[in-house]
Design a binder for these strands. Sequence first.
DNA 1: GACGAATCGTTCGTGGTCGAATAGTTTCGA
DNA 2: TCGAAACTATTCGACCACGAACGATTCGTC
Lengths: 184, 184
Amino acid sequence: MTEGIEESILRSLRRIVRGIDLYSRQLATRYSLTGPQLVCLRQLSKAGAVSAGELAESVSVSKPTASGILDRLDLRGLVRRVRDEADRRRVIVDLTAAGAELVRTAPTPLQQRLAERLGKLPSAEQEEIDRVLRRIVEMMEAQALDAAPMLTVGPLTADASVESGGAPGVESIDVERTRRVEGS
Amino acid sequence: MTEGIEESILRSLRRIVRGIDLYSRQLATRYSLTGPQLVCLRQLSKAGAVSAGELAESVSVSKPTASGILDRLDLRGLVRRVRDEADRRRVIVDLTAAGAELVRTAPTPLQQRLAERLGKLPSAEQEEIDRVLRRIVEMMEAQALDAAPMLTVGPLTADASVESGGAPGVESIDVERTRRVEGS
DNA sequence: GACGAATCGTTCGTGGTCGAATAGTTTCGA
DNA sequence: TCGAAACTATTCGACCACGAACGATTCGTC
């Protein structure tokens, strides 16, 4: 019967993931800010100016993901990216005035109703929830460590040579100017 | 202190989401099957031939998402999509022999180590985890219902006219032939 | 029988996510 | 001093995810 519980847990996890995503879209329609964008903004608000990599680390996403999120925030003038003059490999990210203002008016990145309901539970139960989630994270991330060699079977086609053309012409940009402007 | 717990819970949820995604990529490299693809395959294996919409419902994803996943599975010959002759709006999805075979050899879509560790816990603890997760889902999905009017502020730019050109020429395809073949 | 409403699946557009590859910098050892 | 190794952030390619819009089909009602 461990089978049934395992499937139930997986199902719950998938629904939780979906719930988070759906709330993110709700945020996006109402505040023009997705969940991950808001999480980044809040982290910047709390920790002040940090490097792009530190930000990625502190909100638990990969560097490419953070880069993409920062692109959109930058494009909208909510954050600023400045090359670190001391170590020019690094990029320092900081909130703009508009970004700081938005953080103050935006809701929590956790479902509001979930947050409310959570707040109404006895604190013993809140702690139980917290503890259980931490344990799951622990079990998951322990797995990630001995994650093995990553055999790289290729991009998930099993056949069909992809034949990617080279898309050149990406001259280096200086961060001070916003990149990836598909628009104009 | 509810503040601290709320943030801790959010953080755990985000890491769980990430953990699921990372495991999905691991699956992809080792078995050429992502987590969502495997979940769909398993569901088909369990429930037999169903319509695309029913499949989406049963694995808790939207119809467009299921459509995309089915595209990739179809492309690789793991599922078959046939127009329902009785109700020609519907598309019946079924495993091919190759798909059925793959389901038998593939691991669980839940992190293997997580599953193992989970299995070693006393069943009281397993049930506690299950119960807590269900409760979170419940609190989340209750929120989703009174989700409010969806004010549609526009596609998240606040300015900058997107100027989408029309991309016509999408003549209707008959499902029997695979669509979206970016490759060849 | 015909026409509008509902239903089904797909397409389009946007965004999040990651690993691999890449470009620019810094560091350190020979 | 000079070049290899390490590091930082970005780009690229692939996938998942959704809502809105769309075309095809069916249903309901007149």
